[in-house]
Design a binder for these strands. Structure first.
Lengths: 185, 185, 185, 185
DNA sequence: AATGAATGAGATTTCATTCAT
DNA sequence: AATGAATGAAATCTCATTCAT
């Protein structure tokens, strides 16, 4: 019965994320996670000291990964390219990690106090981009952030929900939309 | 003896909403709600048959109210005025019912299946508005919906979180931003 | 099935004491206590917020009662009578509350830090008595306390264990023994 | 490589004793002991088949050592010297092995049944001494035992707790006290 | 000998719901 | 209508012990 595998810790995180995004954190029990991984409840506690540690571990992990992806935008030369690249990376991350995104989103803004300990928050990457664009971006950075994040978020969620067709170049389409909206006031 | 108390049922809903938006649904116990109202656990069950009934009751109530508010936009004459009125009503509702909004938002789009029974969903009001604007609105209605809803949502949440200053005419500012974004592609 | 009784809280304390002294605190489960009382585990938590609260509650309750009993010695006129009365009350309390005594003893001196919050500790009543006897009692009060408490404790425990016969006037016999020991150096 | 480490079995017993006397038996986990020794849980089971075996092993070991120490009293010539030597050995053992003593004490008299298998119980050495003193000791041996053991026990515990100063000749002081108490009725 | 992941049983605690009053 | 004790199911967590390596 003892299935041997090296990466139990990683598998716990993955299963937890899947279940958290499907059912919510509170609705997901340690037993659920254990069953998904294929181990017993007690075994979870060799890798994490509490359910909360799993939650925070997940948030930190994906938050950082998302942040790093967004920061790739700064590799581009022109500001316009940086902007388009940021949109591209944002949506790519969402579609590649839909569960993580839903989970992050939920956690992110609704429980702001609990997030303070994390250094690399995705929103900070975007804010940096928008502040760098002062002059090109016609409105104050925080309002631009709201439109940028809000729009991409909804695009992703509507696509997931089937409300919006995820056809070929939705990334380019949305990038155009946002670029015009924020630069041509 | 003559003090007219709002009837208990209403007070239960209000207290539940407050606690749900503060701590989440699962984290809020019937005992918490009872204490907030100033009655005991058993008494709750005089008015609702289950905790779930409270949840659905709340969602239906605020969802409908929000929908009705948004539909007021159609009282305006010109399309532009309707659009501006919708933004105005959206943000007014949010700021007047911040708890309800946070709560609704969460429930709304992330758990689409659970929402099917409700006829008057806020998103349908906005969708109707955007479809009526075909011609003026340059992009397909669903994408416009994503930007419209996403932006307003984030404006509200950022304002609540202190990231965005809620100065005098934020409603007008945001309405301008959205109007230009959606009409001038 | 729902047996109606007013004093569930008291019954919980009594059952807990019985089991604690029989099996030890850690070895006694909430389930054990519940079964002994004739209710379910959950019901315990309507009366106490944790197992620890039961433990501290018990200690405080019996500690105070024991203290009050010992303080009755000061009702007597002569010092000798006070001394004899204290011995009498000490042993009476032990034989009337054997479980409490074993439990108290265990808790008392082995986990001194945890006991600080309690004001009326039995040992303080005895210490007061011995200090009042300065002059009559020939040795320093703390050493006298050790002999007084140690002897009575062992007399009780040996009697309980069947090592010592609990015949008619053991209280008088022990009081004589202690009185002579402490006054005639 | 040449550092001769005390063998693991002994180190386990020592660590276990330390933790048992600090936190109690049930409160001490195998993992705690392993960490204290510097090995892992599984390794413990190379040396002991169960936690209970550690417990009984410890009790037997210290009980016997204590017994042997007390029996040294019989090396003395006169009865008075035997008595004084017994007090001396009793307290020496306590102060040298405070953890063992606390642990033994607890176990010793409160759970008499569990102790039956052990042949050399400290109390039997004392009882032997007191019985040999018939004539000199004025009271029945069991009562004398209670005073002897109880007083010494409390002297040790109070000293440990800081209630009693452990100055130069406390052993002689206590021996005098007990000798007079038991012989001059 | 030793490691440390895993098991499995059980302990504490929580809580929606029921029910006698 | 209301109270609040009690139920019962389930959740989190603990830990002695086993076992593959």
């Amino acid at each position: 019965m003892r299935v041997k595998r090296k990466d139990t810790k990683k598998r716990i995180l993955e299963s937890a994320l899947k279940l958290f995004s499907e059912k919510g954190i509170r609705e997901t029990t340690i037993k659920d996670i254990a069953k998904e991984v294929g181990i017993t409840e007690g075994a979870i506690y060799r890798h994490f000291t509490s359910k909360d540690e799993i939650v925070r571990g997940l948030f930190g992990m994906y938050s950082e990964e998302f942040y790093d992806r967004l920061m790739l935008a700064f590799e581009e030369k022109t500001y316009r390219d940086k902007f388009y690249r940021a949109v591209e990376e944002f949506l790519s991350f969402c579609f590649e990690n839909p569960e993580a995104f839903k989970y992050l989103d939920l956690f992110h803004y609704l429980r702001a106090e609990e997030v303070k300990e994390f250094k690399k928050l995705p929103k900070d990457a975007i804010l940096k981009l928008l502040e760098e664009g002062r002059g090109v971006i016609k409105i104050r950075a925080e309002l631009a952030l709201a439109m940028f994040v809000g729009t991409l978020e909804r695009v992703f969620l509507f696509t997931q929900a089937g409300l919006l067709e995820k056809y070929k170049d939705i990334k380019g389409e949305v990038a155009d939309l946002l670029w015009k909206a924020l630069t041509s006031q």
